[in-house]
């Protein structure tokens, strides 16, 4: 029986089933109503709980931004670093102690604007990281300015006349850089997200998952998604699962009827940085 308490005459459970993995004393979180980050948190917590790796060995690293606040709510070793630098920080952690299961959770701005160079190099090195990129098509925390993922024509706080800069197609870049595992899902796809996160923990090498998420008060409101639900509706109506999609064609316009192609696009095995480095150290010592 779950322990219950009477609050205003209503029985509520004192403990959330996942309290063990949350810093409950830090709640409520800072995210806006309709934001997808609560769903991402729930999936990540559940994936970690079900992973074969003991909790003490899970480390979650982030940069700066709305998404980067996520690790701070997890009752694990968590590192909230500087804007764009989660990847090199996590690289150092993982190389120094390859027994750690290192996950980076950060936004599109963090990973593809200010930190883009670090990401492609971590992929090139094949550092054994799980990189979960929550893409909300703008800089949410600073008030909704455009970035490298903002679709053409979209209105944001700094594209009042519509964005004319071509956006990045994240799975395409990451696959081209050589990531052994590449996937994309939306916050509507909770089962798939949970499954893909668990798979990412098993991947030897850099596993990249783009998670498309609503950002209702900024990107959403200015681009015909009146609330978080409206964008979830769009995901529901226009997501197309295609694991074998031609990645060059899956850029996002975020305008109906253009599809949001989702799936587990790449799943291969190549030597990791740590495996190759271990060999090098053996050679150097003999």
């Amino acid at each position: 029986m779950t322990e219950v308490e009477l609050v205003h005459g209503v029985e509520i459970s004192v403990k959330h089933p996942r309290d063990e993995l949350l810093r409950a004393d830090r709640l409520p979180h800072i995210w806006c109503p309709g934001c997808g980050l609560g769903i991402v948190t729930k999936c990540l917590v559940e994936a970690i709980r079900r992973s074969d790796v003991p909790l003490d060995r899970h480390v979650v690293v982030s940069g700066i931004g709305c998404t980067s606040r996520l690790p701070g709510y997890l009752n694990l070793d968590t590192y909230h670093t500087t804007h764009g630098r989660a990847i090199p920080f996590a690289t150092g952690l993982k190389i120094a102690n390859p027994d750690l299961e290192v996950t980076v959770v950060a936004g599109d701005g963090d990973l593809f604007n200010i930190g883009g160079n670090h990401l492609i190099h971590a992929i090139r090195r094949n550092v054994d990281l799980n990189v979960f990129c929550v893409n909300n098509f703008n800089y949410g925390m600073t008030g909704g300015q455009f970035g490298a993922t903002t679709p053409i024509g979209a209105r944001t706080a700094t594209t009042p006349y519509g964005n004319f800069e071509a956006p990045f197609n994240l799975p395409y870049i990451v696959a081209a850089a050589g990531a052994p595992f590449v996937a994309r899902w939306t916050t509507l796809h909770v089962r798939q997200l949970l499954r893909v996160m668990r798979r990412a923990f098993q991947i030897q090498g850099l596993a990249f998952v783009e998670i498309i998420s609503p950002c209702p008060p900024t990107f959403g409101e200015l681009n015909n998604f009146e609330d978080g639900y409206a964008m979830m509706e769009y995901f529901r109506n226009y997501s197309r699962v295609d694991d074998h999609a031609e990645l060059s064609t899956i850029g996002l316009s975020m305008k109906p009827p253009d599809p949001v192609v989702v799936g587990n696009f790449v799943d291969t095995r190549k030597p990791t940085y740590h495996e190759l480095e271990r060999e090098l150290i053996e050679r150097a010592r003999n």
Binding site: G84, P88, G92, A96
Partner: peptide, 24 residues
């Protein structure tokens, strides 16, 4: 038995050493 990591720039270099230091 130590690690030499050549990073993509100096921003990555300092971030990586801070990460490794936190790993002990």
């Amino acid at each position: 038995g130590g690690h030499y990591v050549q990073m993509e720039d100096e921003i990555g270099s300092i971030a990586a050493i801070l990460g490794a230091s936190n790993a002990g």
